[in-house]
């Protein structure tokens, strides 16, 4: 199944993956091959089949509404690549 370079770049942008030109070309080819293989599913009639998202059939369990503080915000913040006054710091959101 042919997939265009524009599609590859669009999907990469949705997935926040910076691609070099070579990456984009290689992925266009590989994704095309894989999707071509997966097109075999088209040959299978699935009308009336209910989709399965979980192999287990039960309802989701609940937790009771009780607060159990994790108690160690520092352990969470200490992994941050950049932090400031208890916040996670990120570069400017609006780009030029």
């Amino acid at each position: 199944m042919a997939i265009t370079r524009e599609e590859v770049l669009h999907v990469a942008r949705l997935a926040r993956l910076a691609l070099s030109d070579a990456d984009a070309d290689r992925l266009r080819e590989q994704l095309g091959d894989l999707l071509e293989y997966m097109k075999q599913l088209d040959g299978l009639d699935t009308s009336g089949v209910v989709p399965t998202s979980h192999a287990v059939e039960m309802g989701t369990p609940f937790r009771e509404d009780t607060v159990l503080p994790f108690g160690d915000p520092e352990a969470i913040l200490s992994n941050a690549p950049d932090r400031e006054d208890g916040f996670f710091r990120v570069p400017r959101i609006i780009e030029d």
Binding site: F87, F88, V90, P91, R92, I94
Partner: peptide, 12 residues
């Protein structure tokens, strides 16, 4: 200001 901010801080 939001538009000119050089960085933002996230409180989760």
């Amino acid at each position: 200001e939001f538009a000119g901010a050089q960085a933002s801080l996230a409180d989760l």
